[in-house]
């Protein structure tokens, strides 16, 4: 149980980078971008292909982000210059990327099991530090018997994801970032304030997909393979993360919202892992579980709010009736 939860948090913190990317398009730009289902795989494919061909893992990971950025920019260009509906532009790009991803990998699944990944390199640096035995000592003290193989990936990824979050927060507060946020809020207004909305949308969707592809490249290295179908249903996962995060942690400010998205992604992974522990559910039920989670996360806050409003009105009415002479 502890081990599977550990795995959930470990991959959740990587998927959080993808969720941040989806947040940029869905929430900030108000651009429902389906490119991510393709660009996530592109990230994985580029990373796997590069590593198999002897390129250093770090460079391979960066290349993944670059490939995602290009894919996102293309979607942005289709939408702004080609005047194609945002959803359709994303679907077109996602479809095109499927073929491109196959070409990059040369086969539907590309294994890196015999290669050295970024995480393998990390572990070789990490192991002599002895931090693992320290942590494992602590958890076995708590009575947990199965211990994780390494803490390195989790700790590195927490730093990386938080770093990306801080960069995103800063970016969204710069002059360019403010204009980007205004596009999703009031496009007509920001255009009348001399912002080139087309190029802002193009770079915005580009950055979003760079993050998604980066997550794809990291997930591929974590699992040791890239698969052409690994992006299936990813957009719903991204949305689920955002919605869960927002429902639990709120959206008061940008700093809060991006943190909520990251935590949402981790919690989503944990929920899925818990669900899979239930006997009658199978791995194939994942998508159904995801859909149910999104629906619950969407509906519950509304129901709670309506209840609260109703209760408030009833109280108010009782109050007025009790002291009511003057208000008749």
């Amino acid at each position: 149980m502890f081990i599977s939860m550990f795995g959930a948090v470990e991959s959740g913190i990587i998927y959080a980078i993808m969720a941040l990317g989806v947040y940029l398009t869905f929430r900030v730009l108000d651009f429902p971008d389906l490119t991510v289902e393709g660009s996530f795989v592109t990230g994985a494919a580029v990373t796997a292909f590069s590593i198999v061909n002897g390129i250093p893992p770090f460079v391979a990971t960066v290349l993944a982000a670059v490939a995602g950025f290009i894919a996102g920019c293309l979607t942005g260009i289709l939408h702004t210059k080609g005047k194609i509906n945002a959803l359709l532009a994303g679907i077109l790009m996602m479809t095109a990327l499927y073929s491109i991803n196959l070409r990059v990998m040369g086969q539907p699944t590309l294994s890196m099991l015999n290669e050295t990944t970024l995480f393998d390199q990390l572990e070789s640096v990490w192991a002599p530090l002895g931090i693992d035995s320290l942590f494992n000592g602590m958890i076995s003290f708590l009575g947990i018997e199965q211990i994780p193989r390494t803490w390195a990936i989790l700790i590195l990824m927490i730093f990386v994801t938080i770093g990306i979050k801080l960069l995103t927060d800063f970016y969204l507060k710069t002059e360019i970032g403010l204009a980007l946020r205004a596009i999703g809020d009031n496009k007509k207004m920001i255009r009348s304030l001399s912002a080139n909305t087309d190029s802002l949308i193009i770079t915005g969707v580009g950055i979003s997909n760079a993050l998604v592809a980066l997550a794809g490249g990291l997930i591929a290295q974590l699992g040791g393979f890239a698969d052409v179908n690994m992006g299936l249903g990813l957009i719903v996962i991204g949305l689920a993360s955002i919605i869960i995060g927002e429902a639990l942690f709120g959206t008061k400010s940008i700093v809060r919202a991006t943190l909520a998205v990251i935590l949402g992604a981790v919690i989503y992974r944990m929920i899925v892992t818990l669900a899979l522990e239930v006997d009658f559910l199978e791995a194939g039920d994942m998508k159904l579980i995801t859909a149910v989670i999104v629906v619950v996360a969407l509906v519950t806050p509304k129901v709670i709010q309506t209840r609260r409003e109703k209760k408030r009105r009833i109280q108010k009415r009782a109050q007025l009736r009790a002291g009511g002479d003057g208000h008749a």
Binding site: T174, E175, I176, A179, A182, I190, L193, S194, A195
Partner: peptide
């Protein structure tokens, strides 16, 4: 303040520096 900052950038080039 963010709205004002966007208007403030109208006749300047928008850069990667804090808006407020």
């Amino acid at each position: 303040e963010e709205n004002l900052s966007m208007a403030y950038s109208r006749d300047k080039k928008r850069k990667l520096r804090l808006g407020v």
